[in-house]
Design a protein around this nucleic acid. Structure first.
Length: 510
RNA sequence: GGCGGGGUAGCUCAGUUGGUUAGAGCGCGGGACUCAUAAGCCCGAGGUCAGUGGUUCGAUCCCACUUCCCGCUACCA
């Protein structure tokens, strides 16, 4: 079995400050990375910034600062965001790094050598902000300015020499690949869109620009800059030091297990990227998953509507883990998700504070008073105890399968349901009425402790800090979290002292 | 215009390979308890499953049409 797992987020284009969409992609990726980690996988988790292109160049010019300095600054804000989101990424790549440039130029040379690239000429209306060309009928004139109808961005006439990638010849191979790898484009709902796009015919792709300088130069023709997408997508292998044979990261982690991205850039990842790789005779990633957008009040978040939810502000107000939990729980993964501060607060109060936090509290408080502050030792499981404990064992394989299908909601719903069951169990068993039957009382406490431990293990990928805080009860640290051990009903050392912990989640006054 | 997805409780969504009383969470109303963050547990109210017609012994689930929303794509010109 392949015990290596390589997951990537998009590399973020830092022309604006980080928003909820960035946070969402990163948090979900971190969830998968952490889960695989505690399930015994060797995990490589990559994120970073995409820093080339005319848009960045002009933004730097406007600010009158050196372009690279400009990039250093904004890339740093994304690196900080990774820290703020408590990402477990093992690398952070910038397309302005030397290691990346070398790989991109190497890849270019392969493509050129394989006759996958040729020099020709392109003319048309070009939008800098969209990085795309438009036909005459796709633009309109407003106030004397040429505007792309779809994106409302300004276009300018470009008439220049350009290198082209023979995308057209990969139409059939791509379709064959999709067929042989039915899960490559996920979720399924977006697969048809891509397939029908490819079926409708692929045109060769312009992969160089002469009109600006901020990018990676085409080897042997310094007048040309490599197209930003060819540049950016390559980050997934440049971060593995491809083609450096001295370093076995590439050997270990390629092909990537999953490229996690937003649905807006699915085409680049599901068509262009595999085509580049096919042309260079490099293995294709196993899966590209295009998740939905985070919406606020049914509308795309926008400043003018004042409905923007800034991840940093939310985190400052409520804390990181509530945001992570909320995004993973309430957004139906793969679909667009509506979020609101109101629902976030409900979620914190009912799921985190009342259900999970209070469970930890009530059991430790009870055990502190009735079990001398020790994890009970004189215990004897009965049927109703084992039914609950074994439920984790019975579902463990299923949970792994669901994770590999990116069924995030199944995973968290299993946890929520376990919490209901746990609270009901403690209620129904009424240990406070069993003080004259210490063995039974001890067993109830031990069972509930074990449930808390198992649930905390499962919560760790979602809310790592809070799960670790809960596990402090048993003095379990990060290195001792192991998903397989949720099968074990006797993980906790009997007779050992346990710790009382404070409030895990503060309730929001509404 | 074409292709695809969708319209299910106040809200967010699940589900039914067609079959007696359509589900969950949140929210709301009531009850019993007390270990706990006035948390937890139990009970309950709430839906013509977008509309119309058809197939069927029987449709929320199949078919047709209508309508609304969303995505991809094309084009008239």
């Amino acid at each position: 079995m392949d015990k290596n797992f390589y997951i990537t987020t998009p590399i973020y284009y830092p022309s604006a400050k980080p928003h909820m969409g960035h946070a969402y992609s990163s948090i979900i990726a971190d969830f998968f990375a952490r889960f695989k980690k505690i399930d015994g996988f060797n995990v490589h988790f990559l994120t970073g910034t995409d820093e080339h292109g005319l848009k960045i160049q002009r933004a730097a010019e406007v600010k009158n600062v050196d372009t690279l300095k400009f990039c250093d600054e904004i890339s740093e804000t994304f690196r900080k965001l990774s820290k703020t989101l408590n990402l477990s990424n093992t690398d952070f790549i910038r397309t302005t790094e030397e290691r990346h440039k070398k790989t991109v130029q190497y890849l270019w040379n392969i493509l050129e050598k394989n006759d996958e690239i040729y020099l020709s000429k392109y003319s048309g209306w070009y939008s800098v902000s969209d990085e795309a060309f438009y036909n005459e009928d796709e633009i309109e004139t407003i106030d004397g300015k040429k505007i792309a109808i779809n994106s409302k961005s300004e276009v300018e006439w470009v008439d220049e020499e350009s290198y082209f990638f023979r995308l057209s010849k990969w139409e059939k191979p791509l379709l064959d690949f999709y067929e042989k790898n039915p899960d490559f484009i996920s979720p399924k709902s977006r697969k048809n869109e891509i397939i029908s796009f490819v079926k409708s015919g692929l045109k060769d792709l312009s992969v160089s620009r002469k009109s600006f300088s901020w990018g990676i130069k085409v080897p042997n023709n310094k007048d040309h800059i490599i197209y930003v997408w060819l540049d950016a997508l390559t980050n997934y292998i440049s971060a593995l030091n491809y083609p450096n044979k001295e370093n076995d990261l590439f050997k270990t982690f390629w092909p990537a297990s999953i490229h996690l991205i937003g649905k807006d850039i699915l085409r680049f990842h599901a068509v262009y990227w595999p085509a580049f790789l096919l042309a260079a005779k490099i293995e294709l990633p196993k899966k590209v998953y295009g998740h939905g957008w985070i919406l606020s009040g049914d509308e795309k978040m926008s400043k003018s509507k004042g409905n923007i939810l800034d991840p940093l502000e939310i985190i400052e107000q409520y804390g990181l883990d509530p945001l992570r939990y909320y995004l993973i729980k309430e957004v139906s993964f793969g679909n667009d998700g509506n979020i609101s501060q109101d629902r976030l607060e409900d979620c914190i109060n009912s799921d985190l504070a009342n259900n999970f936090g209070n469970l930890c509290q009530r059991v430790t408080a009870f055990a502190m008073n009735n079990c001398q502050g020790l994890i009970p030792k004189d215990i004897d499981f009965e049927k109703e105890d084992l039914v609950i404990l074994d439920d984790f064992k019975l579902n463990i394989e299923n949970i792994r399968v669901k994770i590999d299908e990116q069924d995030v909601n199944y995973y968290i719903n299993f946890i929520v349901n376990s919490l209901f069951v746990a609270n009901k169990y403690f209620n129904d068993q009424e240990p406070w009425k069993k003080k004259d039957n210490p063995k039974r009382m001890n067993t109830i406490v031990y069972t509930t402790f074990e449930i808390i431990r198992k649930i905390s293990f499962m919560l760790y990928p979602i809310i790592p800090d809070s799960a670790l805080k809960a596990l402090k009860i048993f003095e379990i640290n990060e290195n001792n979290i192991n998903f397989s051990s949720i099968m074990n009903n006797n993980f906790l050392e009997q007779g050992k002292k346990f710790n009382k912990i404070g409030i895990l989640f503060k309730k929001i006054e509404k």
